[in-house]
Amino acid sequence: MHGDDIAQLMYLGLLGAAIAGYFLVSNRDRLGQVAQQAAIWGLIFIGAIAGVGLWSDIRRDVIPRQTVFSEEARVEVPRAPDGHYYLTLQINDTPVRFVVDTGATDVVLTRQDATRVGLDPGELAFFGEARTANGVVQTAPVRLDEVRLGPIEDNGMRAFVNSGEMDDSLLGMAYLNRFERIEFARDRMILSR
């Protein structure tokens, strides 16, 4: 700790002591009730700190995620709370989150995801067009050197980079058709090769 940190800690300690002293003096005729309320607020404060500290663990356990069964070359993907299915693929050893879109023909990367996997959108030729819910956008064809989903690997896969704004990259039928079987059972999508 530096000198400034110690001074701030001492200031906060004195301020806390002054506030606690005021409460004790102003409520001296009902100290039992004040102690009970202080204990309740203390437990609420400790619970809030624990919740913030454990949030990443809670989020990991509550949010559904894909499961890869290597021996069977099968992937199970739970439906997300928003009703979509999301898959995380390793593209050139970089994890990329895709929204599964059975209405899309191709695999389409956002400009940000394209940059993350080693493609420079500034050097791509955006001469293709795609019709989306937001209108017509320009696209650039690319080849993805390596696409992996657990033990399932595809090389030299054709994809496109979208010039428009997209929240997530799209995983269309060009990739999904590489699986022998696609089925939906309850709230899960099951892909088998």
Rank of each mutant, 00 (worst) to 15 (best):
M1K: 10
M1G: 14
M1Q: 13
H2S: 15
H2G: 14
G3I: 15
G3F: 12
L9E: 15
Y11L: 07
Y11E: 13
L14V: 09
L15Q: 14
L15M: 12
I19G: 10
A20D: 07
V25M: 12
N27I: 11
N27A: 09
D29K: 14
D29Q: 12
D29N: 12
L31W: 09
G32H: 12
G32Y: 12
Q33A: 13
V34M: 14
A35K: 13
Q36P: 01
Q36V: 15
Q36M: 14
A38L: 15
A38T: 13
G42W: 05
F45K: 07
I46Y: 12
A48N: 13
A50F: 14
V52M: 13
L54W: 15
D57T: 14
R59D: 13
R60V: 07
R60D: 10
D61C: 07
D61G: 11
I63G: 03
P64H: 05
P64K: 03
T67D: 05
T67Y: 06
E76S: 07
A80N: 07
G83T: 09
Y85N: 00
L89T: 05
Q90H: 08
I91K: 01
P95K: 02
V96P: 00
G103T: 08
G103L: 07
T105K: 11
D113N: 06
D113A: 08
R116F: 03
V117I: 15
P121T: 08
G122C: 05
E123T: 14
L124T: 09
E129K: 13
A130F: 03
A133Q: 09
A133N: 05
N134K: 08
V137K: 03
V137I: 15
V137S: 12
V142A: 00
V142L: 02
R143L: 05
L144F: 02
D145P: 07
E146S: 15
R148C: 04
P151L: 00
P151N: 10
E153W: 04
M157I: 11
R158A: 11
R158H: 09
F160K: 02
N162M: 08
M166F: 14
L170H: 05
L170T: 10
L171I: 08
M173W: 06
A174Y: 04
A174W: 03
Y175P: 03
F179Q: 01
F179D: 00
E183Y: 07
E183C: 00
M189F: 00
R193D: 06
R193P: 05
